[in-house]
Design a binder for these strands. Structure first.
Lengths: 134, 134
DNA sequence: CTCCATTGCTACGTTTTCAGTAGCAAGAGA
DNA sequence: TCTCTTGCTACTGAAAACGTAGCAATGGAG
């Protein structure tokens, strides 16, 4: 391999398709589903790492970038920023100069639907305990 | 760190901690949260790619591995298998010889909590439409 | 038994995403 | 001016996901 001659130095980015990354949204094909059904976009969106956690941490009020970063246990700023962009783009949260990042009305409706999951998670925990040390 | 002198050659796998991968579960620290609170484990679990989708596709009955793979739009078998292991380990689904993969009672309770998300997602879609072409 | 199809995976090389750290520009005080 | 906070961007290395190939086991059909 490696034919002698020249061109041995630069071989970095042969793929110039540097398309902008967009958040999943209803009406567009998402990962694993080309139908554009809203629920599929939602599944794709909240299936991304940190998305659910970010919404969860904002449930009781707005947080600044740094506060949110800390609340998420030290998530790296690049990923946090990417997720915040996704969530802003899809209308779930917004950035207020004064207070930081806060959920929109739409975002609040979503997290309200998600709060009962706490109860389920606790049943789940008890169930798993029983299964392990019976 | 790294006292000078020698040992400059091999530097491949300095981390031999090849621990088995375990699914997030209540009572244990998860990504970004050391408290072990059940809801954090749940957020970690369903924040993994494909987990929510798999549960969604199983909502109306059991599917075989291949059927599930197809239902998820051609997810790669290695990832599917990993997610199925997570979900079995956490008691959300089980593998029946005859019918394939099916949700447990616990899993069904979870997806029942998640079905209203369809309605939210549709409001979301309408909202985004209004915001784009007003 | 041989042939073929189906099922549930495993292997492995490539690509994408995430993690972790460093650091910078802008603004607010002191 | 100096310092501090805030909201990021850049970069490198590690982990996760993708995509394809393929294999062992099972179950008929002929």
């Amino acid at each position: 391999m490696a034919p002698p001659g020249k061109a041995q130095k630069t071989a970095k980015k042969p793929a110039p398709k540097a398309a902008k990354k967009t958040a999943p949204r209803p009406g567009r094909p998402v990962r694993g589903s080309a139908t554009g059904r809203p629920v599929m976009a939602l599944i794709d969106l909240i299936g991304r790492r940190w998305v659910l956690r970010i919404l969860w941490e904002l449930r009781s009020g707005p947080l600044t970038f740094r506060a949110l970063q800390e609340a998420c246990g030290g998530i790296s700023p690049s990923v946090l920023n990417a997720r915040l962009a996704d969530l802003k783009e899809t209308g779930l949260l917004e950035h207020e100069e004064a207070e930081g990042y806060r959920m929109t009305q739409l975002g609040r409706e979503l997290t309200e639907q998600l709060t009962p999951l706490t109860g389920w998670a606790e049943r789940w925990a008890r169930q798993l305990e029983k299964m392990q040390k019976p």
